[in-house]
């Protein structure tokens, strides 16, 4: 669907729902009132968090330039390469579908296979804007546990896959 049509469909749905909730309230239609109550209480909870999350993400976008990170990428060997992979993944916007083409070009520019795999893995788990969103809604503890467990595991898997596949002469294609 085109974005414009999608927007119109969404707005129509919202308007329809508003009418439904209003009529339910006036006619004292029980299930309708209950839906309306769930909607408003959840919306209220979210609105306490949403603006903060958006402001934080925008500040991050304004102050951290991805070009700076990419420039350093591939220069670091050993563990530094993996640290840059985390940083670069942190600034990646969008999901895996953005990470694959970028991983391909990084590898072509000389990034090791292990670092490239690590980058793909990290771009799923530690994009900073997404992590800010997560921590806002689920709590910092939840995010901390997830990162503390998944970063080492993803790194180990990437190193092992990188070593094995480098020996086999594997290459990322386009």
């Amino acid at each position: 669907m085109k974005p414009r049509r999608k927007l119109i469909v969404n707005l129509a749905l919202i308007a329809g729902f508003a009418v439904f909730a209003g009529v339910s309230l006036m006619a004292d239609f029980k299930p309708g009132r209950q839906i309306g109550a769930t909607f408003t209480s959840t919306l209220w909870e979210m609105m306490k968090l949403l603006p903060c999350a958006f402001v934080l993400i925008a500040l991050f976008d304004v102050w951290v330039k991805r070009e700076m990170v990419i420039r350093h990428f591939g220069h670091g060997s050993g563990i530094r390469g993996y640290l840059w992979a985390i940083l670069l993944a942190g600034t990646t916007i969008g999901g895996l579908y953005v990470a694959f083409p970028l991983a391909y070009s990084l590898h072509k520019k000389g990034a090791k296979l292990g670092v490239t795999f690590a980058y793909i893995g990290f771009s799923g788990i530690c994009r900073i804007p997404m992590t800010l969103f997560e921590a806002s809604f689920m709590g910092a503890k939840f995010t901390a546990v997830r990162l503390a467990v998944s970063i080492p595991l993803i790194t180990i898997a990437a190193v092992l896959m990188g070593r094995y596949l480098t020996k086999r002469g594997y290459d990322i294609t386009e």
């Binding site: 927007l7 969404n10 707005l11 749905l13 919202i14 919306l43 979210m46 949403l50 603006p51 958006f54 402001v55 993400i57 925008a58 500040l59 976008d61 304004v62």
Partner: peptide
């Protein structure tokens, strides 16, 4: 500039979010 980005994105996302 950050505030502008935040507001633009917020209102862009709002309909999907409400649905």
């Amino acid at each position: 500039a950050a505030f502008k980005i935040a507001a633009t994105r917020f209102f862009k996302v709002l309909p999907v979010f409400l649905v």
